[in-house]
């Protein structure tokens, strides 16, 4: 999909909205409850939920964008739309380049087969052809530092080993645009350091990065720019420091407000007979 957005833009969202209908189908998923709720079922009543509301966003080629915001603000939905996993309800997504979405490490790993076999399949799943995957497999194995465990069935793996292999595959699939959702902190301190260095390496090679995280320290470390999502809308945009500070200040203000409310409540209770 190369189009009108211009050569220096890697990823563009234009007026993207995503609505989920929290339908009553769930409540009426069997015959009995369907009959019990027949009027509602027939009227097809749905509670609409707006996950993203008219979001427009441009990520320039080689840029690294951080997306922050509270839980349920639409960060992951944004990433899923960018990755092509789910289509937007309205609006348009344009991607110039190969997008690899890292929404979870080790998706599709099967416990009964070896780490090496899983790594190969996972690499193809994430975007390589089999020939390319075979080529990078030695690098993946080396990066994972799994030693002889690489040829053991993955049910033998500790969760740390599992994620190490997952991360190793993910960073070796040669994306042009890499989407990362909260998967940076894996393994021990030493392995984390190695992952961070690798991400920096990808950036210096011109890979476009979109990072969703709750770790406010990693945003200024990795990103050139950040946006704040709240209730499905972009409410702030700017340098990472600026956006993170603004966001944290608001969270603190909110917390202070809550504490104050609670104190007032206590006072009110104490006064009441």
């Amino acid at each position: 999909m190369r189009s009108d957005i211009g050569g220096d833009v890697a990823l563009a969202l234009d007026g993207v909205s995503k609505h989920y209908s929290l339908s009553l189908q769930k409540e009426a998923s069997d015959l009995k409850s369907m009959l019990l709720h027949l009027p509602r079922f027939l009227s097809n009543a749905r509670r609409p939920f707006v996950a993203l509301d008219n979001v427009s966003l441009r990520v320039r080629r080689g840029e690294s964008l951080g997306i922050v915001g509270p839980n349920g603000s639409g960060k992951s939905t944004t990433l899923r739309i960018m990755a092509g996993i789910t289509p937007p309800t309205s609006g348009k997504l344009t991607a110039n380049g190969r997008v690899v979405g890292l929404l979870e490490l080790g998706s599709g790993f099967h416990p009964q087969i070896t780490g090496r076999e899983n790594a190969l399949l996972n690499a193809v799943l994430l975007g390589l052809t089999l020939a390319e995957a075979r080529e990078v497999l030695p690098d993946i194995v080396e990066f994972s530092e799994l030693g002889q465990f690489i040829d053991q069935p993955m049910r033998m793996y500790s969760s740390g080993m599992f994620f190490r292999l997952g991360f190793s595959v993910a960073v070796h699939v040669q994306p042009e645009i890499l989407l990362i959702d909260e998967v940076l902190a894996v393994g021990d301190a030493q392995f984390q350091e190695k992952c961070m260095n690798h991400i920096h390496g990808l950036r210096s090679r011109g890979v476009t990065l979109v990072l969703v995280t709750h770790d406010m320290l990693s945003v200024p470390k990795f990103c050139d720019r950040a946006v704040l999502l709240e209730q499905g809308r972009i409410t702030d945009e700017g340098t990472p420091q600026q956006v993170v500070h603004g966001y944290l200040a608001r969270v603190e203000a909110l917390l202070a407000l809550r504490v104050e409310e609670q104190q007032q409540l206590k006072v009110a209770q104490a006064v009441a007979p």
């Binding site: 899923r80 990755a83 092509g84 996993i85 979405g101 929404l103 979870e104 998706s107 799943l125």
Partner: peptide
């Protein structure tokens, strides 16, 4: 479902 929700292929 778990795979379909996390990876595009």
């Amino acid at each position: 479902g778990a795979l379909i929700k996390k990876v595009y292929f």
